[in-house]
Amino acid sequence: MSIGNSPEDDRPSIEDDRPSTDDERPSIGRALQQARIDAGLTVDEVTTSTRVRIPIVHGIEEDDFSRCGGDVYARGHIRSLARAVGLDPDPLVAQYDAEHGGRPAPTPAAPLFEAERIRPERRRPNWTAAMVAAIVAVIGFVAFTLFNGADNGSKGNHVAEGPAPEQKPSPPRPSTSKPADPKPDPSDSAIAAVPKDKVTVKLSVLDDKSWISAKSHNGKLLFDGTLLKGESKTFQDDERVDLILGNAGAIELFVNGKKVEDQFETGQVERLSYTKGDPEVG
């Protein structure tokens, strides 16, 4: 029998081989803080990369999630911080759910869709119907106005109807106006009212047409053109009027109020000059 430890002392300890329980895991905040320190990052650097405010980062590292604003935001912050310091976020989120009553059940989509379907849609104004109604109203108003106007007119005519009072013919009144003087026939005396201090020549085309040129005593051109049948021209000058008639036989000529009786032939060209005296052929 050897002196020393008993065989029982050589057996491995049961407590050393026992797997670690969940209670031996570091807390979420402790794990994030240790990983940040191991990564050589400061809180400010983690805040810059995750956009999680500094007070919230300090609170999570102290396992205080009250500043996160709810479980949903707390899970999101845990995931952001875990990725920033190089940890797998899923075990930390699962640990958070286990410590805070589990992950909430997702809201079924059917009631949401049903609520969206039942929600009444806001009706837009129907401008086309409003415009049609306005046009119909205007047409109705115009028709009503015309109908009333026609009705009133017919009533007024009905009142005005009836036998008209007989009017006795009034006796003829004696005429006080003097009888009009008989118009004198065109003659030498009727045209004699031309000014005596000027030479007045009047041309009238009786048949076909005639080319006419008229000049004053100083050579000023008074007219140069063709007169058609029924057209007339009158020329005046202080001393003399010179004429060229292209078709003298078609022209009736008055000089100083007197008709020139010379018989010109059709197609004949005449050069004539007249002064203040009696008509004389130039």
Score class of each variant (00 low, 15 high):
Gly249Val: 02
Pro279Val: 08
Glu116His: 14
Thr226Pro: 06
Glu99Ile: 04
Tyr96Ser: 01
Gly277Gln: 01
Pro174Leu: 15
Pro108Leu: 08
Val199Trp: 00
Asp224Trp: 03
Ile60Asp: 00
Phe144Met: 15
Glu116Trp: 15
Ala192Pro: 06
Pro182Lys: 14
Ile135Asp: 11
Ile14Trp: 12
Tyr274Lys: 00
Asn256Phe: 02
Leu146Tyr: 06
Arg75Lys: 01
Ser187Tyr: 04
Glu252Leu: 06
Thr107Phe: 14
Arg173Pro: 01
Val132Asp: 09
Ile118Tyr: 11
Glu265Lys: 08
His77Asn: 10
Ser49Glu: 02
Asp151Thr: 07
Ala84Met: 05
Pro120Trp: 09
Pro26Asn: 07
Val201Leu: 09
Gly40Phe: 04
Lys276Asn: 02
Asp16Ile: 12
Pro26Ile: 06
Thr47Ile: 13
Glu239Gly: 04
Ile37Lys: 05
Ile54Asn: 09
Asp16Pro: 06
Ala105Thr: 06
Gly59Asn: 07
Pro182Trp: 12
Tyr274His: 00
Cys68Asp: 12
Asn152Val: 03
Pro108Phe: 05
Ala137Asn: 08
Glu15Leu: 15
Val281Leu: 08
Pro12Gly: 11
Glu8Met: 14
Pro125Arg: 12
Gly249Phe: 03
Asp224Tyr: 05
His158Lys: 14
Pro26Met: 05
Arg240Ile: 12
Glu265Cys: 02
Val255Asp: 01
Val281Lys: 04
Glu239Phe: 09
Pro104Arg: 04
His217Ser: 15
Lys215Asn: 09
Asp22Met: 15
Arg117Ala: 14
Gly156Glu: 11
Gln268Arg: 07
Glu166Asp: 10
Phe144Gln: 13
Val85Ile: 01
Gly156Ser: 07
Val199Gln: 00
Asp23Ala: 10
Gly282Lys: 03
Pro179Met: 08
Gly40Pro: 02
Ser204Ala: 13
Arg117His: 13
Glu15His: 14
Ala105Cys: 02
Thr42Cys: 07
Pro91Lys: 05
Asp278Val: 11
Asp44Ala: 15
Pro26Cys: 06
Pro12Thr: 13
Phe141Arg: 09
Gly156Asn: 09
Ile118Leu: 15
Met1His: 07
Val159Glu: 15
Gly267Ala: 01
Leu245His: 01
Pro163Gly: 11
Arg79Val: 14
Asp188Val: 10
Leu222Lys: 05
Gly267Asp: 02
Ala248Phe: 03
Val159Ser: 13
Asp262Trp: 02
Asp278Leu: 11
Ile135Gln: 13
Gly267Lys: 01
Glu62His: 03
Ala193Glu: 13
